[in-house]
Design a protein around this nucleic acid. Structure first.
Length: 274
DNA sequence: AACCAGGTTATAA
DNA sequence: TTATAACCTGGT
């Protein structure tokens, strides 16, 4: 199946930038897992070549996942208008998109990500998916979907340790319990303002400011929220002589307004790729 | 052998 | 309010 792209899209950078953990690379083709589908995808000039075990609405699913319906060119212009420094940074991130991730999977992923390496995060997620996720056969290979909350309701802290999540075991057990008994409704919290959503997520152990902002940006599409890490701190210090987390926040919000999340992501990629 | 990885919590000043 | 140690794991 073919999807024509209008505008810039850098498939490789978008998939491999570190936002998602479970993907498989095979030359220029990628296997990704979106909800109940295993999808093979590659980019050929202006066309995405896509195949999947489930083809209904595949085009819409892929467009939604890679945020292809949003006009990034317009947003980029607005960001540059407010800060000319961003021109070079943005042109080096041409075609980068913020992936639309499932909230539950993102919460689990990013709780596990704290003080952890990408490789180790991926290992834990694969172990969990292989044990509890539905198996899908696609092109003669086996893949595992990420399990929904109810499949994980009986997993104990001890069992999570066998999936190498370490001290994060209790955080996972607790939030899975809260989601399953509907004290935490992942659809409903989308009605909260970004600030309230941040606060709500951070009320759970294992979710601090960094993890919470990743969840807000990646699975609730809050472009006014952004993670601040060592890379962002470095570039802020170099370019603007801004030091603390609070100052970074203030500068980004006042300069980039509702698109600070994207502006900061651009800085992150620019700095990290250099 | 000591240190670190894209963090968070608990505790102490 | 701000600083610091401890934390599982797997890798140099």
């Amino acid at each position: 199946m073919k999807i024509e792209i209008n505008g810039d899209f850098n498939l490789k950078d978008t998939i491999t930038c570190g936002q998602i953990f479970r993907y498989y690379e095979d030359n220029d083709k990628y296997i990704i897992i979106i909800k109940d589908r295993v999808i093979e995808i590659s980019l050929n000039n202006n066309n995405l070549i896509v195949d999947s075990n489930k083809r209904e609405n595949l085009v819409e699913v892929v467009k939604e996942y890679f945020d292809l319906n949003r006009n990034y060119e317009d947003i980029n212009k607005k960001i540059i208008k407010n800060d000319k420094n961003m021109k070079d940074i943005i042109s080096s991130c041409k075609g980068f998109k913020v992936i639309n991730q499932d909230p539950f999977e993102t919460i689990i992923e990013y709780i596990i990500s704290s003080n952890n390496s990408v490789k180790s995060i991926r290992k834990s997620l694969d172990l969990i998916a292989e044990k509890y996720g539905e198996k899908v056969l696609f092109k003669n290979k086996e893949y595992y979907l990420f399990p929904s909350p109810k499949y994980l309701c009986n997993v104990t802290e001890e069992e999570f340790r066998t999936y190498k999540v370490g001290f994060r075991d209790k955080y996972l057990v607790n939030i899975i319990k809260e989601i399953n008994n509907n004290n935490l409704n992942l659809k409903e919290i989308n009605n909260l303002s970004s600030e309230e959503l941040m606060k709500k997520l951070m009320s759970y152990n294992g979710i601090g400011t960094k993890v919470s902002s990743c969840i807000c940006l990646f699975s609730y599409k809050r472009f006014d929220v952004f993670p601040i890490d060592t890379w962002v701190k470095k570039i802020m210090l170099e370019k603007y002589n801004i030091k603390t987390q609070d100052e970074i926040k203030e500068y980004a919000i006042s300069t980039y307004k509702e698109y600070s999340g994207l502006a900061i992501q651009y800085m992150f990629h620019y700095k990290r790729n250099k």
